[in-house]
Amino acid sequence: MAEPTSTRHLGLRIGCAGWSIATAQQPLFDSGASLLERYASRFDAVEINSSFYRPHRPQTYERWAATVPADFRFTLKMPRTISHHARLRKAEPLLDDFLAQVAPMGDKLGCLLLQLPPSLAFDGRVAGAFFKRLRARWNGGVACEPRHASWFAGPADDLWLRYRLARVGADPAPCPAARHATGEPALRYWRLHGSPRTYYSAYDDDALRAVATQVSEETPNGAEAWVIFDNTAHGHAIPDALRLQQLTAMPEPVEQTQPRTVHTRSRD
């Protein structure tokens, strides 16, 4: 099996939404006791979306964290009870329950992801109150994927910086500005859902090269960047993520040696 391509020196984490591995893709990974362990032999990040639909026991999160290497990180999608049902209002008990469930992950929990419904327009008072309460409970990375056009106008820009939020760059984008990752300078986050058919389409080499260029241009020096492939329906996420690893890899530095001095003897 080919050695995994390292992107850690770029501050870049590339992974998939979930760690399902199709049978045909299994030779790309090392052996392991679980699919997550095998997945972690090639990737250093994963996004868990099942937490959006249902709660998991703390013991489950603890087991997942214990399965992966020390430098591996998880993103957890925040429950839809917060984003879609409560719509960010009076969500403190829901936040407390969720954060208590995920606490056993410890420092393996690298980021929380909040995906908002397309119908949720920006309301500065509601959003500000929610993120203030979230920040009182969680000091780590937070990425937010709004999908209503009002979140991409000027009034929302202050929100990202005030509460240290990374605004997700998404493909397909609900509006042109949504394809760009911005917000908190220390964190950039992209979610690639598949285009033109969401969740199903693969990305060709030209598209992946464009992603690599965009990540390079939009990630500040010293920031951590995440690129998550969510085009999982036909199994394209893994090969696309592995190809992006290759496209973003830097060659190992060539060891420089001192020039040798050649001594010659003059003829008498």
Rank of each mutant, 00 (worst) to 15 (best):
E62R: 14
R63C: 01
R63I: 00
W64K: 02
A66K: 14
T67W: 06
V68T: 08
P69H: 13
A70D: 15
D71H: 14
D71I: 03
R73C: 12
F74K: 01
F74A: 02
F74D: 00
T75I: 13
L76M: 08
L76D: 01
L76V: 11
K77G: 04
K77T: 13
P79N: 06
P79W: 06
T81D: 09
S83D: 10
H85V: 15
R87Y: 08
L88H: 00
R89H: 14
R89S: 13
K90C: 08
A91W: 00
E92I: 11
E92P: 05
L95C: 07
L95S: 09
D96H: 06
D96M: 07
D97E: 15
F98T: 02
V102C: 08
V102G: 01
V102Q: 01
A103V: 08
L109D: 07
C111L: 15
L113N: 08
L114E: 00
L114Q: 03
Q115A: 07
L116K: 00
P117C: 10
P118D: 10
P118C: 08
P118S: 10
S119Q: 14
L120I: 10
A121T: 10
A121P: 10
D123H: 08
D123G: 04
G124V: 03
G124N: 12
R125H: 12
V126N: 06
A127R: 05
A127Q: 09
A129Y: 00
A129M: 06
F130R: 05
R133W: 03
A136Y: 01
R137Y: 10
W138C: 08
G140M: 14
G141L: 05
G141V: 05
G141R: 06
G141A: 15
V142W: 06
V142L: 14
E145C: 06
E145W: 07
P146Q: 12
R147Q: 10
R147F: 04
H148L: 04
H148A: 05
H148S: 05
S150W: 10
S150V: 04
W151Y: 03
G154E: 14
P155N: 09
P155Y: 02
P155F: 07
P155G: 04
A156Y: 06
D157P: 02
L159T: 05
L161Y: 08
R162F: 03
Y163M: 05
R164K: 13
R164W: 01
L165W: 07
R167A: 00
V168T: 09
A170C: 14
D171Q: 15
D171C: 15
P172C: 14
P172N: 10
A173K: 08
A173V: 11
P176I: 02
A178P: 10
A178R: 00
R179G: 09
R179L: 11
H180F: 12
H180Y: 12
A181S: 15
A181H: 04
T182P: 02
P185R: 08
A186Q: 15
L187E: 05
Y189R: 02
W190N: 04
R191N: 13
R191L: 13
H193N: 13
G194Q: 06
Y199N: 08
Y199M: 14
S201W: 05
S201Y: 05
A202L: 12
